[in-house]
C-alpha cells in the first residue's frame, strides 16, 4: 500500500515488477492517496506526504501480532516476515502451549512454558540456536 494511484500501480507492475519476477504481482497493490490508512497505522510521514516502510502481521481474528517500520532507503527482509508468520501460526495452533525462542525457524526447538521451565531455559535451549545455521 502506497499513496500512488492504482493506475501507477498497474504501470509499475507492467513495466518493472513483472520483469523482476516474471509474472504479475500476485497480491493486491493497494492505493492510499492522502495517506488516510497510513495515518491510522502510524506510518504516514506528513512532511514527505508518503507512507514509510511499515509492515504489519494481522492474524485470522484481525489482531495485529507484529509490526516493523523502516525509513525509506532500507528494504525489508521478506524471509524474516515469513519466519515470524510461521512462528505466530505455531503458537496459535498450540494455543500458546509452545513458544518460539529467539532465532526460531521451522524444525528448531520450541519451548513449553510451565512452572518446571522457570529458571531452567539454560537446560533446554542453547544460545547457538538463536543464530542461523
Amino acid at each position: 500500500m502506497s499513496v500512488d494511484s492504482t493506475f501507477v500501480h498497474k504501470i509499475w507492475n507492467d513495466q518493472e515488477l513483472s520483469k523482476i519476477i516474471n509474472k504479475d504481482i500476485p497480491y493486491p497493490m493497494l492505493s492510499d492517496q492522502g495517506g488516510k490508512v497510513g495515518s491510522i497505522y502510524g506510518v504516514y510521514d506528513e512532511e514527505g506526504g508518503v507512507n514509510t516502510r511499515g509492515r504489519f502481521i494481522i492474524d485470522p481474528d484481525g489482531v495485529v501480532q507484529a509490526f516493523e517500520v523502516l525509513t525509506p532507503p532500507v528494504g525489508r527482509n521478506v524471509s524474516e516476515a515469513i519466519r515470524q508468520i510461521k512462528a505466530f501460526q505455531l503458537v496459535r495452533k498450540t494455543k500458546g502451549g509452545e513458544v518460539t525462542p529467539s532465532g526460531w525457524q521451522p524444525g528448531k526447538k520450541t519451548l513449553k512454558p510451565g512452572i518446571g521451565l522457570v529458571g531452567n531455559v539454560w537446560k533446554e535451549w542453547n544460545v547457538s540456536e538463536a543464530f542461523d545455521d
Binding site: V43, G48, R55, F56, I58, P60, R76, A81, I85, Q89
Partner: peptide, 12 residues
C-alpha cells in the same frame, strides 16, 4: 486468513 500488510513510500 493471515495478512501481511506492507506500506512503502512509492512505486518505483
Amino acid at each position: 486468513k493471515w495478512v501481511l500488510l506492507c506500506f512503502y513510500p512509492g512505486d518505483f
